[in-house]
């Protein structure tokens, strides 16, 4: 059973072992970059972090056109064209970073990808705290192939996670040390990330 108190962000519309795409129910109600989200796959609860978000027309091949030439504000464009909010959609992509099976949390790829139409929720503080006890997931982020630079994503994830911690600095130091051991041979990259997460 899903916990209904949680914020539902959207629905999976495309999924693979390493990532999934989800569409938001409302236009522009996108989670921030680096948000820890979850979705269900059978008995497993999959955890993922948002690495990319975008908004486009629902019909491929039909690009939106500029409509606001005679309007005084952006809101007025939508008021004059109420169909627009139905013709556009917001989507986000998330990288799978672990899963929970019968209370056991694993920070590596799950056996199966997420299911299409699976609901995607933002994790609450307790879940974030629970998940961030270990930083083993960082290796998945550092090695992922994606459009967003992975250093930016790692920094965004850690900034968001640290906000849920009691001791922000201690968490960032712990995560930093994990990064340092992963990027021992690549000091320039490590330095770039550390500069982005410095409290």
């Amino acid at each position: 059973m899903q916990d209904l108190s949680q914020t539902r962000l959207g629905e999976v519309i495309e999924a693979s072992t390493t990532a999934f795409n989800a569409q938001c129910y409302e236009l522009y109600s996108l989670p921030p970059l680096g948000t820890l989200v979850k979705t269900c796959e059978g008995d497993n609860e999959l955890y993922a972090v948002v690495h990319r978000a975008f908004t486009e027309g629902i019909e491929p091949g039909r690009k939106p056109i500029a409509r606001g030439k005679d309007e005084i504000s952006e809101e007025a464009v939508f008021q004059a064209n109420p169909q627009l909010s139905k013709l556009l959609r917001s989507e986000f992509s998330a990288l799978v970073v672990g899963y929970k099976n019968a209370e056991h949390l694993h920070q590596y790829l799950p056996p199966h990808p997420a299911r299409i139409h699976g609901f995607v929720y933002a994790c609450n503080q307790k879940e974030i705290l629970n998940f961030s006890r270990s930083c083993d997931f960082l290796t998945l982020l550092l090695n992922a192939k994606m459009e967003t630079p992975s250093d930016e994503l790692v920094a965004a994830v850690l900034r968001l996670m640290s906000a849920s911690q009691e001791d922000t600095r201690a968490f960032l130091i712990k995560a930093g040390k994990e990064l340092a051991s992963l990027l021992g041979q690549d000091y320039a990259r490590l330095k770039a990330i550390l500069e982005r997460i410095r409290p």
Binding site: G176, K177, Y187
Partner: peptide, 11 residues
Amino acid sequence: DFSAEVLSGTS
């Protein structure tokens, strides 16, 4: 201080 603390003992 932050980077110094992270790096010392690791890298």
